[in-house]
């Protein structure tokens, strides 16, 4: 896949950080405002996909990117499963909200919901980016270099 024009590349470099930051904001405020791990993870994946589309995949080594995306996906789902098993390790039941609740409407509140959201965000973002690399960056029959 070839990159786009200079205009697109410049604008992409300006806004891709903001998109990434907005995704992180949505993930971290999942227990306070609408959003959460799924939506934020997809926005983070969208920032990476915008970068790949604008810069072109020739400059990037896609095999390494795919390997890393796969690694982060496994890491995210491991975090979520670990938090779910935390209750079992502590001697009570599965999926118990063990951590302190904190004050409502503060960032560090709601026990395991915030770390769960972070785990889901990593997992979903890496998963969608892996799907995009695998499906869209594959060499078609048409383009020969």
């Amino acid at each position: 896949m070839r990159g786009m024009t200079l205009i697109v590349k410049t604008i992409t470099r300006l806004i891709v950080g903001l998109i990434f930051l907005y995704g992180i904001y949505i993930v971290f405020h999942g227990h306070l405002t609408p959003g959460g791990g799924f939506a934020g993870g997809i926005i983070i994946a969208g920032a990476f996909i915008l970068l790949v589309l604008a810069e072109g995949s020739e400059e990037l080594s896609t095999e390494v990117k795919k390997w890393r995306a796969s690694l982060f996906e496994s890491l995210g789902i491991f975090i979520f499963w670990f938090l779910a098993m935390l209750g079992v390790f502590a001697g009570t039941f599965f999926f118990l909200n063990l951590l302190p609740k904190g004050k409502p409407l503060e960032l560090l509140s709601a026990g395991i919901i915030l770390p769960c959201n972070i785990g889901i965000g990593i997992e979903v973002g890496a998963a969608l980016f892996a799907i995009f690399i695998t499906l869209a960056v594959l060499k078609g029959k048409g383009d020969k270099e």
Partner: peptide, 26 residues
């Protein structure tokens, strides 16, 4: 749960099993 967004409270606390299943399916 201490979460002011009720949707997050339901999908990650009351109904955590469903979300675990969804993430595993993905």
């Amino acid at each position: 749960t201490g979460a002011s967004n009720l949707v997050a409270a339901i999908i990650l606390d009351f109904r955590g099993y469903d979300t675990l299943g969804e993430v595993t399916v993905l």
